[in-house]
Amino acid sequence: MSIKSAPIRLSIVGVGKIVRDQHLPSIAKNADYQLIAAASRNGTVDGIDNFKSIEAMLEAVPSIEAVSLCMPPQFRYEAARTALDAGKHVFLEKPPGATLSEVADLEALAASKGLSLFASWHSRYAPAVEAAKAFLASTKINSVEVIWKEDVRHWHPNQDWIWAAGGLGVFDPGINALSIVTHIMPKPLFITAATLEFPENRDAPIAAAITFTDADKLPVTADFDWRQTGHQSWDIIAETEAGRMVLSEGGAKLSIDGKLVHDEPEQEYPALYARFAEIIKAGISDVDLAPLRHVADAFMLGRRKFVEAFVD
């Protein structure tokens, strides 16, 4: 007879749109968790204790076992260190931090304390991603094209932090594409060139054109743009010896030579929280920095091009 373990006593920090739309419903449906507290400067969660800061929350509710950090990446490092120093497991919304170095420091701290750190990449858990990975592993790839274009005014209205240094700009959605590409490609990619378009009044890019390759000189391109209105494009297209693969709608659908072969309902955030519970129970961390490393490389190698000012 198996004995069911008690639910993980979870708290959440940074109560904004993504938390209300994705995190809270996913947590509510997962029996592995009991949400007992939240901390946010502006938002609150009904039915639990709410605080203005993570420090106040951890002091008042010492029974918290894990913390989900959902504030902008520029502010995530200090909160993560605070949680880890208090002996809590930590879930990091994407991107896991503003820099590679700070996330590496958090990973080392978590390891030294025997705690679990989870760098979450929600797009990797889109329903057709694993099928795309299996298909690409089964054939020779001739080229790959990534098209990730959306309307920033629709998805991020009046969010100034995303345009600040460290906010990533168009790489905030673009890193979702990179998280899929780095997962499904059989061999590691590296950037060879990039052009980043910066509005003259912003510190983060509104568009990026990037070329990649791998050890076999595979041609790969990515086109990220935040100025697209109407239909939104989240597609990864691979020309292969087994046909043309299109992973569309952010990883939700997979087609081969125009035939839809995989289409299931989106369950990204429920899958993330299932994975977080899994690593906590296993006593391990899951911190893959490949998507963020590509963003850093794009800023390092990228040519800056200034374009007209952006007005929200």
Rank of each mutant, 00 (worst) to 15 (best):
S2Y: 11
I8M: 07
L10D: 06
L10N: 03
V13Y: 11
V13W: 08
K17H: 14
L24W: 06
P25Q: 09
S26G: 04
Q34A: 14
L35H: 11
I36Y: 04
A37M: 11
V45F: 06
D46C: 12
F51T: 07
E55R: 14
A56N: 13
L58Y: 06
I64K: 00
I64Q: 01
S68D: 15
P73T: 00
Q74C: 07
E78K: 15
A80C: 10
R81W: 01
H89K: 08
L92K: 03
E93Y: 10
P96R: 06
P96T: 10
V103H: 02
D105I: 12
D105R: 12
A111R: 11
L115F: 06
S116L: 08
A128Q: 07
E130F: 01
A132W: 04
L136N: 05
K140I: 15
N142C: 11
E150C: 07
R153A: 12
P157T: 00
N158A: 12
A165V: 01
I175A: 12
I180A: 01
T182E: 05
P186L: 13
K187T: 13
L189W: 04
F190K: 13
T195Q: 14
P199G: 12
E200M: 10
A207P: 03
I210D: 10
D216A: 15
K217M: 13
P219Q: 13
F224E: 10
F224W: 05
W226H: 14
Q228N: 12
W234G: 08
A242P: 08
E249K: 02
K253Q: 00
I256F: 10
D257R: 05
P265G: 06
E266K: 04
R275L: 01
R275V: 01
E278V: 01
I284A: 08
L289W: 04
P291Q: 12
A296I: 11
F299H: 13
M300V: 01
